[in-house]
Computed example of a mutant assay.
Amino acid sequence: MNVKLIKAIFLCSAFLTVSCSNYQFQGKSISAANYCDLPLLEGDTVVVSTYYSGIEEYWGLYSKACDLKAELNIDSMHIHNQQAIEILNDVHSEYFKYQLKVKALGYYRSSEEGAGHLGHNDGDFFVIEFLKLNKVKNEIGQ
Rank of each mutant, 00 (worst) to 15 (best):
N2Y: 07
N2Q: 12
K4I: 11
F15N: 03
L16K: 15
S19W: 06
N22P: 00
Q26K: 13
K28V: 10
S31M: 10
A32Q: 04
C36H: 06
D37C: 13
L40C: 09
E42S: 11
G43I: 05
G43F: 02
G43K: 11
V47T: 09
T50K: 00
Y51R: 02
W59P: 03
Y62E: 07
S63I: 07
D67S: 14
D67E: 14
L72S: 03
N73T: 13
I74E: 02
D75Y: 03
H80K: 11
H80I: 08
N81G: 04
A84D: 08
I85F: 08
I87Y: 03
I87A: 08
L88S: 14
L88E: 13
N89H: 04
D90Q: 14
D90F: 04
S93D: 12
Q99C: 00
V102Y: 01
K103Y: 07
A104I: 07
G106M: 00
S111K: 11
E112K: 12
E113C: 08
L118M: 15
L118Q: 15
N121R: 14
N121L: 07
D122E: 11
D124L: 15
V127F: 00
V127L: 01
I128V: 09
I128P: 00
K132E: 15
K137Y: 10
N138S: 11
N138E: 03
G141N: 05
G141D: 05
Q142T: 13
Q142F: 09
